[in-house]
Amino acid sequence: MAEPSKSPVTFDISRRNMLLGVVLGGASAIAFARQPAIANPKIPEKRFEEWVPKNFGAWDEVSQSGVILPPPDALSDRLYDNLITRVYVAPDLPPVMLLLAYNNAQDGVLQVHRPEFCYPVGGFQLTPTRDIMIEASNRSVPANFFTATAPNRVEQVAYFTRLGSAYPRKWSEQRIAVMRANLAGEVPDGMMMRVSVLGTDPREAQGLLTGFARQFIENSNPKMQHLLLGPDTRG
């Protein structure tokens, strides 16, 4: 008995399915080829700590405690490859608290917590954040400054974040910087430097903190300087 011939409708459906499979397969291959690549390797904790100077200028490290930390959450172990806290003292100056947070891969899910999020979780009321600049190693780094107040503590805070070659001052700018890097085929690394001092005078504190940050950066290991300042794109 002769086999029944395939109907034109069945043949068209099969051909469409085959063509659709080819198109989807090609799209998947292109998407895989354009998938953002992680360019920066993880840094071992001990090596990262070695890059943090114990003393510079008139400043000496005296403690690793007393610094307000980012709140723990389900992603805390993935948010930061490295998290360092230090307290430094200098003659006739109030102690300065330092926090450094680094992650080698910032994507749409994992991004460095900004201090405006961390401090309120700890019960602080914040003044509006204002823009400042930190001058270091012939670079001008966009940074933020605010006052955090709790019932028994007033802290003046300055910080900056670097994502790849960008210095986002706001959460929205941070997300945009990550998306731009991802669209360019890159997964940027992320670095935050936060310095703070106890006291009620913002003007005096700003001068102290920006000066401390400048000296810290300029006296750090060159590899730490690169993490803090990122690539020089001034041309």
Rank of each mutant, 00 (worst) to 15 (best):
P4M: 13
P8Y: 00
T10H: 07
D12C: 14
N17S: 13
V22Q: 08
V22S: 07
S28N: 06
Q35L: 11
N40S: 13
I43L: 13
F48H: 10
E50V: 10
F56S: 11
A58K: 15
W59K: 09
E61L: 15
P72C: 04
D73N: 14
S76H: 10
L79I: 11
L79K: 11
Y80R: 01
L83H: 10
I84N: 11
V96D: 07
M97K: 14
L98G: 00
N103G: 09
A105T: 08
V112E: 04
Y119N: 00
T127I: 04
T129H: 03
D131E: 15
D131C: 05
I134R: 02
I134Q: 04
I134E: 02
S140L: 06
A143L: 05
A143D: 04
A143N: 07
F146V: 03
A148M: 05
V154Q: 09
Y159K: 05
T161W: 01
T161R: 11
R162L: 06
S165F: 07
Y167K: 05
R169A: 06
W171Q: 15
Q174Y: 06
I176R: 14
V178A: 06
M179P: 07
R180N: 12
A181K: 05
L183M: 14
E186Q: 14
V187L: 05
G190K: 04
M193F: 01
L198C: 05
E204Q: 15
L208W: 07
L208E: 09
L209C: 05
A213P: 05
Q215H: 08
S220F: 02
P222Y: 04
R234G: 00
